[in-house]
Amino acid sequence: MSEPWEDDVEGPVKKFMFINRKSPYGTVYALESLEVVLITAAFDQDVSLVFSDDGVFQIKKGQKTDGIGMKNFSPTYRALEGYDVEKLYVDKESLDERGLTQEDLLVDVEILSRAELADLMDEQDVVLSF
């Protein structure tokens, strides 16, 4: 028996990619994805996040949800670094279509083309779409 403070034996590490394509608040996808990302990271897995299509609004700066009576979960994306989730990618085309730039986003991300994202997706063991 190991003491409770001793780390568990390391298990297999898989490459997980989470693809976020939905605006926050209108549906529950964004929040659900974030929860699963945190759980996956707590299990020391290799996690990548992609924000594309309306998913880019999930990390838009300046979200104020008092008026709609829902919890503003956007600050949690800034906690990801502490969970060692540092691979955040944004689809350039999605940003351009919406008139947004890196300046509008509340976390540091790498902006990639669809071809580059497709290559990354190809390298994964598990791809989860939200």
């Binding site: 605006s23 608040y25 609004f57 104020k64 008092d66 709609i68």
Partner: peptide
């Protein structure tokens, strides 16, 4: 609708 606009980080 303003509250929905603000929730999504738009002014």
């Amino acid at each position: 609708l303003g509250p929905d606009l603000n929730a999504r980080g738009m002014t």
